[in-house]
Write a protein that binds this DNA or RNA. Structure first.
Lengths: 196, 196
DNA sequence: TGATCGATATATCGAAGCGATAGGTTGTGG
DNA sequence: CCACAACCTATCGCTTCGATATATCGATCA
């Protein structure tokens, strides 16, 4: 999940952790975003696997404002030392590698176990071929239809035994899924009409 | 999350783990259900905390359908032997304690961080007072409106910079949230009309 | 000037969740 | 009688989360 998110965003542009999280929040919504507790370990994992690498920060702020004091000078020096692979203010900027790009294509074509994974596949599907794009959408439709079928089954079995609140919850959920299916169906049609 | 689910279900009736999971799946849907890897540790935690306890399986199936065969009789006998704190077939049946009931009321009134927690609060809200029920619904509405506001904000900021797929995703998500708000609004109205 | 505040940024910890898997039991059909 | 599916409990390794620690930068204001 996070793997796909990070690789997709880094394919767009080089970023550091904090920015990565912000972009992800915009796409996925404030909920269902990722936490730092997952993001930084994930970045470390990906770096160890050679799919991302820390890049020279294109350091757009070359002017170190001199403080005039010894302490200031010393601090500036210390800061400068730490910047071999870091941008200003200790930022660590990551970029995607060729291995990472291959992995991204793999993840885009792979199964979408949960809603968030599908959302990410859709957001980054422009990095894959048209036939893969269609596959993603069709797989999603199948998954949604299966979900709907199970819900109807549940209602059919013990719909009358359920209390008022539970019943309205399940009914609302069912309607939401129906709308999702209509939406994805329209997406598929649009995609099919699009010239190759 | 799981804590609320287990306590709520056990307040309804005494159950064993496997059955607990099945009921949960019916309510929450096949996705967003809980796995055994969370359920059994959670049951152990709750038992250690004295909120649930293993009960004498009240063996509600007094009528062992006689098989007519000797093998059937023998199997039934063997089964009957093994039942100290377990129901038929090694099932471990749990019940809720008084501490557990207090905790349940607490969790019902508490904040619903994610969608699943809200779903559970709604399903079990019949175990709480009418004013708490209303509070749950209103809190949910506030949360949904905040979500909607953030989404609109995102679109307003960089809606034009987003690619086709991302934009349709966010738009669909926004519409879903709007429908959720309409639904919860209707629920609140119904609840307010209900005589105390 | 400096004091403080909020946003930016990296990182780690413990708790809790998940998917896979491995057991063991019971009922069913061949 | 056996094989097989469904039932049931349980644990392992890994991922994720939420909270927290730490530090820097920029702006506001006394």
């Amino acid at each position: 999940m996070i793997e796909l998110a990070v690789l997709g965003l880094l394919k767009e542009s080089e970023l550091h952790g904090y920015e990565l999280k912000k972009r992800l929040r915009d796409v996925l919504g404030p909920l269902s975003s990722v936490s730092f507790g997952s993001l930084y370990p994930a970045l470390a994992r990906l770096e160890a696997a050679g799919m991302v690498k820390a890049v020279e920060a294109a350091d757009t702020a070359p002017a170190f404002p001199m403080t005039g004091s010894f302490a200031g000078e010393a601090a500036a020096f210390r800061t400068a030392r730490r910047l071999s692979r870091r941008g200003p203010r200790g930022k660590k900027v990551y970029g995607i590698t060729e291995d990472g790009e291959r992995r991204l294509v793999e993840l885009l074509a792979g199964p979408a176990d949960d809603d968030r994974t599908f959302a990410l596949q859709l957001v980054f599907c422009r990095f894959s071929e048209p036939d893969i794009r269609l596959r993603i959408l069709r797989q999603r439709k199948v998954a949604l239809e299966a979900r709907l079928h199970e819900r109807r089954h549940t209602i059919g079995n013990h719909g009358d035994r359920l209390d008022r609140y539970t019943r309205t919850l399940i009914e609302h959920d069912t309607e939401s899924t129906e709308r999702d299916i209509e939406w994805i169906t329209r997406l598929i049609e649009t995609e099919e009409e699009t010239p190759a």
